[in-house]
Design a protein around this nucleic acid. Structure first.
Lengths: 337, 337
DNA sequence: TTGAAAGCGGTACCAC
DNA sequence: GTGGTACCGCTTTCAA
């Protein structure tokens, strides 16, 4: 049978209250008793049941992480970085993939709450925040990462997606491109990147491609991206560069271009977003807008823990800035005119 | 304040025992009472506290998943497939990356046990099984996936790694290659693949490359693989083909070859392993030994649930067979002699 | 410094 | 059918 605090108490000839105190290192205990109890715990291989203590209001040291898709490299890398910081701080993660589906988001939210999670880190879409608001009213710590909510008061660690889009477009424009396509999903971050992208075009009096439409939700981003790229490249006025709103989409662009016999970057420059491992694997390696994934993971976990430990009063938004990482998928446009 | 079973009972003018019965759909309850209790639960937005019921012996509906590295595409894809099946069956996953470190493995094992997890799915190295054995003695369900333990009695879903290695080598041999390099990590699965690889060489009277050594543990597999590849290709008798024991390593091989000005597959054929998304992203797309990731995830979760629900008596090992997926990274060796 | 006892939020056995 | 109640394993006053 499992060994409980009672077994330890009996074996050490003390009360369970005393044992509890030495476990938690509080209350006044004589060094002698403390030592004895410790010895018994060791000998019996005792480990306190966290559910029982959680029932009494202590933490579960477990945090819920909601992301769109664990199989997507950006999110798995992000999850890993959050996990790492959590590990240092003594927290575990229960990870849930939502596929951007509102009902999954809400379901996981209430399910994990029932399980007594200490807090939530949200990296999913959350176009609807009712449930999140509800949680926050109940004083359950909630933070968002890699997803900014400009009109909602929530602790956040994110990058400036608008700036990211702006950077991508600016880089391409600087290289001489005037006809630039963009591939994006209809999710918040991508909409922001799109906005930044358009801003840069506008400032340079360039026209936004009329062919644009969001990629619809799918479980095969690569194919969807290739499809869109085909559409662009076989249009009446094919772009000389494409900005894909994440590295996976960019990989699709590159593949599609090659399938159509085009050379990247000579005939088509491509910029990605995220700087995941994908960017270093594709050929040519991908010029991309880097998100500081490690820092984001660390920062949001730190934020979460300060919330849990009640060290934080005001809400805050930490915005990290994206940077351009130049690799081989972009090149100066050969002057044609 | 949180609403408890007492609130519901009071509001519905029944005892908590009755409420508990309607929650769990057991015991005899009149349709009328049932309806009333349901109505109150709804109105009060009541959700039972799972820790409390877990304390009384019920399940937490949470399973621990130990993998080497969540940021590695193979494992994140595997985790996602396990998660998906878990979701269908009502289970959540707490995911821990072990980096193949025994102390992390053991730490997570006891930590999650304290948290009242229903069972463990192990995909990590576990060169040392003491702790695992301990758990099994305590009747905690444990299953392993993508990792076979030939000398240990544990429920397992894995592929035949030996056969995988054999397939890879055979394919290359059939293409005419006689001097084939191999890149592998010093972990169980890779050692098996290596064994299968050698077996195929032997059957064809081919010599195993004397340059071989395992890649040491690192957090940058890509670079490590490139380094090994450089070594092979700049050796006295450079191979005409390389079998890399996972897709990431294969991506490294391809990159290194290109850096050295070699053409893949014309001058160097490459076979990977896993068939992750990487295989479709690299250029040329990767011929690889496919693991049926979806099936493995589903099967192991099903196995886990049958263990939890006590439907399974004997232990079983489910071995899925790997298959060769031919893409563009391998080609018939131009006869030189 | 130590321990008795009252919970935490449920479950389940056993009367009624 | 319904309810009283003894736990589950631990925390936390409050006395002693």
């Amino acid at each position: 049978m499992k060994v409980t605090i009672y077994d330890v108490a009996r074996e050490a000839n003390v009360s369970i209250a005393t044992v509890s105190k030495v476990i938690n290192n509080n209350g006044r205990i004589s060094e002698k008793t403390r030592r004895k109890v410790r010895e018994v715990m060791e000998r019996l291989n005792y480990h306190p049941n966290m559910m029982a203590s959680a029932l009494m209001g202590k933490q579960t040291k477990t945090i819920g992480l909601l992301i769109p898709d664990l199989a997507n490299p950006f999110f798995s890398e992000l999850a890993r970085s959050i996990e790492d910081r959590g590990h240092e701080l003594g927290y575990n993660l229960v990870i849930c993939s939502t596929d951007y589906q509102i009902d999954k988001e809400n379901k996981y939210l209430s399910l994990l709450k029932q399980k007594g999670i200490d807090g939530f880190i949200l990296a999913s879409g959350f176009e609807n925040l009712d449930k999140v608001e509800e949680l926050m009213q109940e004083d359950i710590p909630v933070a968002s990462v890699a997803r900014d909510f400009p009109m909602f008061s929530i602790n956040t660690v994110a990058i400036d997606d608008f700036m990211g889009g702006y950077l991508a477009a600016s880089h391409l424009i600087k290289l001489g491109h005037k006809n630039i396509g963009i591939i994006a999903l209809d999710v918040w971050s991508n909409r922001e990147r799109l906005r930044g992208f358009k801003q840069a075009l506008e400032e340079n009096n360039l026209e936004f491609t009329p062919d644009f439409e969001f990629i619809q939700k799918t479980n095969n981003l690569l194919e969807a991206s290739k499809f869109m790229t085909h559409k662009y490249l076989s249009g009446s006025k094919p772009p000389t560069a494409i900005f894909a709103c994440n590295d996976l989409l960019a990989a699709g662009v590159i593949q599609a271009a090659k399938e159509m016999g085009m050379n990247v970057p000579e005939q088509l420059s491509v910029v990605g977003f995220d700087n995941t491992i994908i960017a270093t694997i594709v050929e040519p390696t991908l010029t991309t807008i880097a998100q500081p994934i490690q820092s984001m993971g660390k920062e949001v976990m730190d934020l979460m823990v300060s919330m849990i430990e009640g060290e934080i009063k005001e809400k805050r938004r930490i915005t990290l800035l994206p940077t351009l990482v130049e690799r081989k998928s972009t090149v100066k446009l050969k002057s044609s005119t």
